[in-house]
Design a protein around this nucleic acid. Structure first.
Lengths: 203, 203
DNA sequence: GTTTTTCCATAACGGCCGTTACTAAACCAC
DNA sequence: GTGGTTTAGTAACGGCCGTTATGGAAAAAC
């Protein structure tokens, strides 16, 4: 039934993802995308739909390829370890690729024209989902005595996310990995102590 | 000699500033600007120069009109008070105007097309200048014993800025003021204690 | 081998971008 | 009042945007 596709869908999506990561959603043009992917415009349209659909698929791939450390972190025994794991992995992710520093969720769309509002909304929801996972994990920690009864899981989750976002902003500004590690360490130095740690030592 | 300007330069700049604040640099078009300012395009060009020059003047006005709390904070007696003042005022600034939440420095340009790189650079320098002020202030605090000898002023300054940036990102995502206050408080809860506080109680 | 279906690529679409001639109007100096 | 000068507003510029119609090449079906 007809001609075969001549390019690798995943490779193209990876190339597209890197461009979005570096230039944001609105800052990326189809000229950028075709150059990076080695595929002409109509092929991108037929394979992924329009620009917004393409970005959403790139975001999903970003999640599965680069954000695996979050579910990883959520399974650690103590809340502090969860936070530490997320913060340090975020530092690493934000500085690992000099060609596209920072993270897609922050770089992609903070401000921009009205037309891109749905995409910004998608990114906000994306971050909110991660934060909700974190909050639930901290609620469990509170039940387990790993966080003190006075701890506010939603505030702690928001704090960890805020530091993560701040790190992303600074990574995009060119901060060194060491400096970002120091930021993460400082954020952790005030972590509330619970009455009992379920298992393992702190990271 | 010649015709008089029919509009108030400062009012126009304020209107322009609010648009940039809300939509970022690249996301703002001259159609947006003329509508908000009530002034036609050529008038903006003759009064402020091109779009980049206009943005830079808006940024300067943002500094003098909304970031006065930073020099204010730098004069407080203890480093912790400095950090607390900045964090809480940042929360306030980021949530005070529902029409343009977040802060101009973050909203303005995190990612975008290559053409806007000079503007992004200007914003990065802008933030770096603030961070350098903070670092110098913390170095003084270390000399005064207000911060422990082991404290790293540059890391502390980067941390305060990171939390500030994270708060800006979250404000733009619609977080409540209370939640952002909780984030700021959590950031402060780990503040390193010095051997002596020069004067006054902690905020 | 012909037909049919699918994909690739050139090229073009209308629309908005930032920027600027150009013309008319308003003001000062004389 | 007249001339010189600065501003205001209309309208247009070339260029890039995201998107798509179109025609030819390639592979499967018969």
């Amino acid at each position: 039934m007809g001609r075969h596709r001549e390019f690798d869908l995943e490779k193209v999506l990876d190339a597209v993802l890197c461009v979005f990561w570096r230039k944001g959603y609105e800052g990326t043009s189809y000229a950028d995308l075709t150059e990076a992917a080695g595929v002409e415009r109509p092929a991108l349209y037929s394979a992924f739909g329009n620009k917004e659909a393409l970005f959403r698929q790139a975001l999903a791939r970003y999640d599965e390829r680069y954000l695996g450390y979050i579910p990883e972190a959520l399974q650690l025994p103590t809340a502090r370890q969860v936070a530490a794991h997320i913060l340090h992995k975020a530092v690493d992710l934000n500085t690992r690729y000099p060609d596209h520093p920072g993270c897609l969720g922050i770089n992609g769309a903070l401000a921009g024209s009205d037309e891109a509002e749905p995409v910004r909304r998608a990114l906000i929801d994306f971050r909110a989902a991660g934060q909700a996972q974190l909050r639930e994990r901290f609620e469990r920690a509170k039940d387990e005595g790993d966080l003190p009864q006075a701890a506010k899981p939603d505030a702690l989750a928001a704090f960890v996310m805020a530091v993560t976002h701040g790190i992303a902003v600074q990574a995009k500004a060119g901060f060194s990995r060491d400096m970002l590690e120091a930021v993460a360490e400082q954020a952790l130095s005030a972590w509330p102590a619970g009455s009992s740690a379920p298992s393992g030592a702190s990271s």
